[in-house]
Amino acid sequence: MNSKFPLFPEAASSFAHHVDTLYFFLIALSVFFSVLIFGLVLFFAFRYKRKPNAEDPKPMLGDLRLELTWSIIPLLITMVIFVWGGLLYYHQLTPPANAQEIFGIGKQWMWKFYHPEGRNEINELHVPVGRPTKVILTSEDVLHDLFIPAFRTKMDVLPGRYTQIWFTPTKTGTYHLFCAEYCGTKHADMKGTVTVMSPLEYQGWLNGELGQDRMDKTGKELFKQFACQTCHQDQSLSRGPSLTGVYDSMVLLNNGKTVKADADYLRESILKPKAKIVQGYDAIMPTYKGQISEEQLIQIIEYIKSLKEPQKEVN
């Protein structure tokens, strides 16, 4: 954001340069074919310009070899682009297991981000350099899209479910953050900044706001407030399945399928408890839909995530 007239965006994430390399390859390819085609058109136009009273040229009906040539060569080129782009896309969409999680909620027309350590921010996102970071996203109203050009990534943000975006920032600095999915009157105002800090600064920033509880702590209070622990206990006879260690584990359902207990699964289980029933349990949980906000949901999920070792569990 230094130059007044940039022609190319800054590259500040681990895959930004990979995307750029592919982009340059495509530009080179485009320039090559554009020059070839324009060049031939102009060359033919002058070389074969009609002379006065000229007879019509001999007809040329076609040539199978030529047709195959200009079908197969573009096909091969596009397949190279497909594989290259596909591999990189897989990388863009698959966060590493050790990624740090941040939650983001979009609503008309602002972004709210929740750090597990308890600090929240609006239209700003602070992240440490060099650490894979995953932002779990949802919307309170319409579609939005979190777009960080310097990281070369974006993802739609949907009401009613979670999507995610991840990146490893490689350069400290301040970058744009946009909403890229049209969301109503002040769509263009739904933007902010991403600040990439050194890990030390980030730690300082996290602790900068006093009196904020960690998300899992707030979540734990909510867990009690909604009386979740009445059923979800760590005893073998409890009416609901134990939640210790459940996050990101594989869960066996009563229909014989297994699902990964990620944030989306937990969210669904709270709002639509009948959708997936853990094997060995009855479908007795009531829905919390309408009683619990998006913010409270991510706090409870953060709490469930923290339930790793049985001995850590107080209760």
Binding site: S30, T78, Y89, T153, K154, E181
Partner: peptide, 19 residues
């Protein structure tokens, strides 16, 4: 048509989609 290839290309589209 050639810039269409940029958009069919998944990784580049992620960046340029809706821009």
């Amino acid at each position: 048509g050639l810039t269409g290839l940029f958009l069919a290309c998944l990784a580049v589209d992620v960046h340029v989609h809706d821009t």
